Amino acid sequence: MSAFTFFAVLAAALLHVCWNALIKNSVSKLTSMLIMTLVQGGFGAVIALTQPFPEAAVWFPWLLASGAFHSAYKLFLVYAYEQGDLSRVYPIARGGAPMLVLVISVSVLTDPLGIKEFLGVLALGTGILLMARGVFANGESRRLVPFALGSALMTAGYSIVDGLGARISGNAIMYVAWLFILDAVFFTPICLALRGRAVLRAEPSEWALGSVAAAASYGAYAIVVWAMTQAPIALVTALRETSILFAVLIGWLVMGDRMDRSKGFAAALIVLGVVLTRI
C-alpha cells in the first residue's frame, strides 16, 4: 500500500466517524439516516450523468447486491444507535467486519497479504473486539449487540462486493455513484414500511444535518472503494477500522461517553495494527 493510499484511507475513517456522530446525535435517527441516503442518492445521480452507464456484468450481482447490503447496514446501525453510545456501538458495528473480510479474502479471493500485514489485521480486529466487550462489563443495553453485529455482517458483505465490483467496473467513480442511487431506491421503501410517512417529516435543521452527513459518507466511501482498487481488500477494510480511534475520542471529548482502561488498551492495539500494516 502506497503512502498516499494509506493516508487517504485514514481520512476516510475520520469522515466515517463524523457522519455516524451526526446520526447518533439526531432527534430521529431513522429520519436522519433516510435524509442522508436520499441526498447521497442525489449526489450519485448527478455524478452518474457524467459517467458511462455500467455494463450488465457490473449490475448483476455487484451493484444490486451492494445496494441491498448498504440498506441493511444502515437499518441495523440505526437500531443500534437507538440503544447505545457512539463509543460502544461503533466498535461493535465495525469490529466483526475485518475478520470476516480477512477470512473470505484469504480463503476465496487471491489478494496477497504479507506476514506483517496479516498480524496488523489481527491486531486491529482484536483491539476493536476488546472495545466492544464493555457492553457486558458496564451494564449497558445488551439489545444493541445483535443490531451492531448485524451491521458488522453487512459491512463485511458490502466490503467484499464493492471491492470486486469496482475492480470489474474499472471505474470507481461510476460504481460508487450507482451504488448510492440503488441504496436510496432500496432504503426508502424500507423506512416507509417501518415508520410510515411520518419518517419523511423533518425540520430544515434535520435536512441540513442529513446533507452534511451525506457529503461525509459519500466522500468516505468513495475513497475506500478507490483504495480497494489499489491495495488488498482485507488490508483496506482493516485500516479503515482505525476510525475506532476517532470514534472513541469524539465520543469521549465531544459527546461525553465514558472512557476507561479497557478502551485505552483496545485503542493501543489498534494503533499497533496501523503500524504493522504500514511498515
Rank of each mutant, 00 (worst) to 15 (best):
residue 1 M to T: 11
residue 4 F to L: 13
residue 6 F to H: 04
residue 7 F to L: 02
residue 9 V to Q: 00
residue 15 L to E: 02
residue 18 C to D: 04
residue 19 W to P: 00
residue 20 N to E: 11
residue 22 L to N: 05
residue 41 G to L: 10
residue 44 G to N: 15
residue 48 A to I: 10
residue 48 A to Y: 13
residue 49 L to M: 15
residue 51 Q to I: 05
residue 53 F to I: 14
residue 59 W to S: 11
residue 61 P to R: 10
residue 64 L to Y: 06
residue 66 S to V: 14
residue 67 G to N: 06
residue 69 F to K: 00
residue 71 S to C: 09
residue 73 Y to E: 07
residue 75 L to S: 09
residue 82 E to I: 05
residue 87 S to H: 11
residue 87 S to A: 15
residue 88 R to M: 09
residue 88 R to H: 08
residue 93 A to F: 12
residue 101 V to P: 00
residue 104 I to S: 06
residue 107 S to N: 10
residue 112 P to Q: 09
residue 112 P to D: 08
residue 112 P to L: 07
residue 122 L to Q: 02
residue 127 G to Y: 01
residue 133 R to D: 05
residue 133 R to H: 12
residue 136 F to D: 15
residue 138 N to M: 05
residue 138 N to G: 09
residue 147 F to A: 09
residue 147 F to G: 04
residue 148 A to C: 03
residue 151 S to T: 11
residue 152 A to I: 12
residue 157 G to Q: 00
residue 161 V to A: 12
residue 161 V to R: 01
residue 163 G to R: 00
residue 168 I to P: 04
residue 175 Y to V: 04
residue 186 F to S: 03
residue 187 F to T: 07
residue 192 L to N: 07
residue 196 G to M: 11
residue 210 G to R: 07
residue 211 S to G: 08
residue 221 Y to T: 11
residue 224 V to W: 01
residue 225 V to T: 13
residue 228 M to T: 04
residue 230 Q to A: 11
residue 231 A to L: 06
residue 233 I to R: 09
residue 245 L to S: 11
residue 255 M to Y: 15
residue 256 G to A: 14
residue 256 G to R: 15
residue 259 M to H: 13
residue 259 M to Q: 11
residue 263 K to I: 10
residue 265 F to Q: 06
residue 265 F to G: 04
residue 267 A to D: 08
residue 272 L to A: 08
residue 272 L to P: 02
residue 276 L to A: 06
residue 277 T to S: 01
